[in-house]
């Protein structure tokens, strides 16, 4: 499936949702109250309101903006399994957002007091099921695509008998550091000016980000390991036994992995702290473990060398 068609899988649902929202809104413009009920409690009663113009721009802007975001992510994604998940999530999201937006306009039509508008809870079940169905359809339409085993392994580093070798490199993530800073600042502001307990969550997130912003990647006789440079734990380790081959790949954090940190994708997982060069290890069972790190070609060559020697001594 071509990239243009994959982009269409998310662009069309978001486009349709935006057009439907705009059309329903404009068609019923004269029959809508000044302020629309836009948020509803668990019993279906209205408990939040927006002016007509704000509701139109907010709803339409959200649909178009997210549609654009998902289209860009699909355009930039290099990995087939990542694209498939992005397309499915995007298409599903278009439905789970478009449906309640259109429903909000419909239930506000012909009411004189927006407080009288009701949105029963069963609509939540409908939008979730519809979202799942459309997401599943997009998943099926996009298909598995080409396997991401395209990159050939890097030539192995020749190791002499009895020679010990170890490769190690730290990598600091600017994105995660910024997230840590923002979380700490936000948490502190909430602690100072709001309920102190509410600041706890951003502070814990900030602490977690700070710990994982700088990692050390090690390749040696034990295999591949990734750990924080600040704390001994947590530490991810892939034993040499489980590694089939290694290579250097280019990854795009947002497009291929949907973000930064420890990422799990179909058939692919790893520590993605930035876009760019990454060490990729193919594991027994066909899965791939990816760590973004500089000089990944040397790391992959050593891993292949250790792997070859390990095979030799065993067989």
């Amino acid at each position: 499936m071509s990239t243009a068609r994959r982009v269409a899988v998310v662009a069309v649902p978001f486009g349709l949702a935006a057009v439907a929202y705009g059309a329903v809104f404009l068609a019923n413009q004269d029959r809508l109250p000044e302020r629309l009920a836009t948020h509803f409690g668990s019993g279906g009663e209205a408990d939040g309101y927006l002016s007509r113009a704000t509701a139109l721009w907010f709803g339409g802007g959200m649909l178009l903006g997210l549609g654009l975001l998902f289209s860009l992510m699909l355009l930039r994604a290099k990995d087939a399994s990542g694209q498939r998940l992005t397309a499915a999530v995007g298409a599903g999201m278009a439905v789970t957002l478009g449906y309640p937006l259109v429903m909000t306009v419909l239930i506000n039509t012909d009411v004189s007091d927006p407080a009288a508008a009701r949105l029963p809870m069963w609509h939540v079940a409908v939008l979730l099921l519809a979202g799942l169905a459309v997401g599943g359809l997009a998943w099926w339409v996009v298909g598995p695509g080409a396997s991401n085993a395209a990159e050939p392994p890097v030539p192995a580093l020749a190791l002499a008998e009895g020679e010990s070798a170890s490769w190690s490199r730290t990598m600091v993530s600017r994105v995660v550091l910024v997230a840590a800073g923002a979380g700490a600042l936000g948490g502190m502001l909430v602690v100072l000016f709001g309920p102190p307990w509410a600041g706890l969550v951003p502070l814990v997130v900030a602490l977690f980000c700070a710990v994982s912003a700088s990692v050390r990647v090690t390749v040696d006789r034990h295999g591949l390991a990734v750990g924080s440079t600040l704390l001994p734990r947590p530490r991810l380790a892939v034993p040499l036994d489980r590694i089939v081959s290694a290579t250097s790949v280019e990854v795009n954090a947002a497009a291929d992995f949907g973000g930064w940190g420890y990422r799990i994708r179909p058939g692919r997982r790893g520590v993605v702290l930035r876009s760019g060069e990454a060490l990729s290890a193919r594991l027994t069972g066909g899965r791939e473990f990816v760590v973004t790190v500089d000089d990944s070609t040397t790391a992959a060559a050593l891993l292949n060398g250790l792997r070859d020697r390990h095979e030799g001594t065993r067989g």
């Binding site: 190791l159 002499a160 008998e161 009895g162 020679e163 010990s164 070798a165 170890s166 490769w167 190690s168 490199r169 040397t298 050593l302």
Partner: peptide, 9 residues
């Protein structure tokens, strides 16, 4: 940083 050592050297 790649370390390579051989006890036979």
């Amino acid at each position: 940083m790649l370390f390579r050592v051989s006890p036979r050297s």
